[in-house]
Each structure stands twice: as structure tokens, then as C-alpha cells.
């Protein structure tokens, strides 16, 4: 028995490539939005170097120098034109009339003289401009040199000043450190006094005590000032007195401690304690 061929299920190919490209596009858009839309704290303002100039001459000399330059150019063509003027002058000679000739010659002479004068003037002017130019350049060079020297001097002086400042800072720091040490020492002394007065107030002296014997104890302290343990490191010779001191120290827990970290280091976690009855 065979089954009749039914129409098979048809799966349509979905436009997957287009959809994938669009999905990628959406993500790219979102990333772009995040990167450019949100002002991320990307850069801290970089330190800016500033050159301070005391004088600003290097800007002006070029402008001074540049202005004379165009002047010689219009003047120079004048001498070039001379031969052209001279060449047409001879033709008037052929006419016979002497007067006219003389007149023409006089005019020509005058013209020549005028031209020569103009020429000389132009030459003088050109020379002057050249001289001016040279002068300006010299001035500029001198200024530059001066500025360089000033720069150097400034650098040297600033370095020296920086050195001095550094040394000053160092010595200041040293002074501050020693000052601080002194402060810490004074605080430590203060608290030692406070602790011994507190312990002394709690001590019940035994009856058989003679003189002013010294007991050395090693006290272990918690950071809060509470007494953890007391051990006698150097006995006074009187056992009853030693015991009384130990009890007094235990009774005066918590001991007063300085708040400062450096001063506290002298007390926590171990404090060697010297006690005298009076």
C-alpha cells in the first residue's frame, strides 16, 4: 500500500541576509549613539605649555622690511626706459632748420638732464632702500641675538630658582618631619603621664613598702586601650607591691590613648610601663 503524494509542506526561505545586515546596522547605530551621544569622560585637559614673551619685536621687523621692497621695483624700470627714449631722439636731427634743431637739442638736453637726475635719484633711492634693508636686517639679527641671550638667561635663572625652591622644599620637609617627631614625642609623654597617674590612683600600696621601688611591666593593649595582659619584666623585690601594680594596671583598663596614629604606635600593641609609687 502506498500513500498518495500529498503536497509537502513548503518552507519559505526568509530573507535572512537582509535581516542580519539590518540587525548589525541597529547595533552599529546604537554603539555610535553611545560613543558620540554620551559625553564620556575621555580626556583630562592636558597641561598647556605657554611661552611668555617679554618683547614682541620679531613680528614687526618683517613688516618694516617688506614695505620697502616694492618701492625699488617701480623705480628700476625707469632706467631701462632711457634707451628707448634716447633712440627716438636722434631722428629730429635731420631737419635743416637750426633753430628748431637747437631748440630740440636744448629740449633734448633738458630731457636728458632730467632723466639723468631721475636716474641718480632712483639710484640713490635704491641704495638707500638697500641700506635700510641691511640696517633692518642687522637690527633684527641683533634683536634676535639679544632675545636668545635673554631666553638663555631666563632659563638659567629659572632653573636656579627651581633648584633653590626644591632645596627649600626639601629642607622644609625635613623641618616639618622633625617638628612632627617632636610633636609626637610630646603627645606620647603626655599620655604616658596620664596613664601613670591613672594607674597610681588605682594602686593600693602594701604596708611593708619601703622607699620608692621601680616596677617594669609589659602591658599588651588592644587598639581601644583595653588591657589584654600584664607581665612584670623587672620586679621591685617586693612581690606584694608587684602584684598591686599589676592589679592597678588591670583595674585602670581602658588606658587613655592618643587619637593620632603616630603617637598611638608607642602604646599599641605593647607598652613597656615603668611604675613608681611616688
Amino acid at each position: 500500500m502506498s500513500f498518495p503524494a500529498d503536497a509537502r509542506f513548503v518552507s519559505r526561505p526568509a530573507p535572512t541576509f537582509v535581516a542580519g545586515a539590518m540587525a548589525l546596522g541597529v547595533h552599529a547605530l546604537f554603539v555610535l549613539l553611545l560613543v558620540f551621544g554620551v559625553s564620556w569622560q575621555t580626556e583630562h585637559p592636558a597641561p598647556v605649555m605657554v611661552d611668555l614673551w617679554e618683547t614682541l619685536p620679531p613680528v614687526t621687523p618683517p613688516s618694516v622690511e617688506r614695505t620697502p621692497r616694492p618701492r625699488p621695483e617701480p623705480v628700476k624700470p625707469a632706467p631701462e626706459r632711457e634707451p628707448v627714449v634716447k633712440a627716438p631722439a636722434p631722428p629730429p636731427k635731420p631737419p635743416d632748420i637750426a633753430l628748431e634743431k637747437k631748440k630740440a637739442e636744448a629740449a633734448h638736453l633738458k630731457k636728458l638732464q632730467a632723466i639723468q637726475a631721475a636716474e641718480e635719484k632712483a639710484r640713490a633711492e635704491a641704495a638707500r632702500t638697500v641700506r635700510e634693508k641691511q640696517l633692518a636686517e642687522q637690527k633684527k639679527r641683533a634683536l634676535l641675538r639679544q632675545m636668545e641671550e635673554e631666553d638663555l638667561m631666563q632659563r638659567v635663572t629659572s632653573e636656579a630658582a627651581a633648584n633653590e625652591a626644591r632645596q627649600l622644599k626639601l629642607s622644609e620637609a625635613q623641618a616639618a618631619a622633625s617638628k612632627r617627631q617632636a610633636e609626637v614625642a610630646s603627645v606620647v609623654g603626655q599620655y604616658r603621664d596620664q596613664i601613670s597617674t591613672k594607674v597610681r590612683g588605682n594602686t593600693r600600696l602594701p604596708d611593708n613598702l619601703k622607699g620608692n621601688p621601680e616596677v617594669r611591666c609589659l602591658v599588651k593593649l588592644l587598639p581601644t586601650g583595653e588591657v589584654q595582659s600584664v607581665r612584670v619584666t623587672q620586679s621591685s623585690g617586693n612581690a606584694a607591691y608587684d602584684e598591686a601594680v599589676v592589679r592597678a594596671i588591670e583595674k585602670s583598663s581602658p588606658l587613655p590613648l592618643p587619637v593620632e596614629r603616630d603617637a598611638r604606635a608607642a602604646f599599641v600593641p605593647e607598652l613597656s610601663f615603668v611604675h613608681r609609687p611616688k
Binding site: R12, A14, T16, A19, G20, M22, A23, V26, H27
Partner: peptide
């Protein structure tokens, strides 16, 4: 999450096209 997001957008677009059709 990036993979999940990419896939889900891909399917969203596929479905969009096929449903429209």
C-alpha cells in the same frame, strides 16, 4: 548579551519580513 541582542534583532527582522509578506 551582545550575541543575544544580535540574534534577537536578526529574528525580529526575519519575522518582520515574513509576517509582512
Amino acid at each position: 548579551l551582545l550575541g543575544a541582542s544580535l540574534m534577537s534583532w536578526w529574528f525580529i527582522f526575519i519575522k518582520m519580513f515574513s509576517l509582512k509578506r
